[in-house]
């Protein structure tokens, strides 16, 4: 079987790719997609740890399922927010959404 560290490295790389997307993308939908990547990286981590550390107890799997639920909720609410912002401002460029600026 492929060693645990390989999965961990894959997941870390995927996480950092997502991180880069969150930091650098202008479009809010793209930022959301990058967040989904990061959540997936976390899930991969959880499942990998479950398989290698506690395969007899479903701790990792259960947590992965909850992350899945939270990801779905986050996607729904996030996209709804983006839609409503788009209706008001006719764009969704994250950089220019600085209403909270003093």
């Amino acid at each position: 079987m492929v060693p645990l560290s390989w999965y961990l490295i894959t997941s870390a790389l995927l996480f950092c790719i997502g991180l880069y997307g969150v930091f650098a993308r202008r479009n809010a939908v793209a930022v959301l997609m990058s967040i989904e990547l990061m959540l997936n990286a976390v899930n991969l981590n959880l499942v990998a740890f479950w398989r290698f550390q506690t395969p007899t107890r479903p701790v990792g799997l259960a947590f992965a399922v909850f992350v899945l639920v939270v990801a779905a909720a986050e996607a729904a609410v996030g996209l709804a927010l983006i839609l409503s912002i788009y209706r008001q401002r006719k764009h969704i460029v994250v950089e220019d959404l600085d209403l909270l600026k003093l």
Partner: peptide, 29 residues
């Protein structure tokens, strides 16, 4: 992002050293 990745790899390498072969993979329930 690159710095974060390097940090993660460093930490992973301490606890689960990068290797070719997986040893003692426990049996699944």
């Amino acid at each position: 992002s690159a710095l974060t990745f390097a940090l993660l790899v460093y930490i992973i390498n301490i606890v689960w050293p990068l290797g070719i072969r997986a040893e003692n993979v426990p049996v699944l329930a």
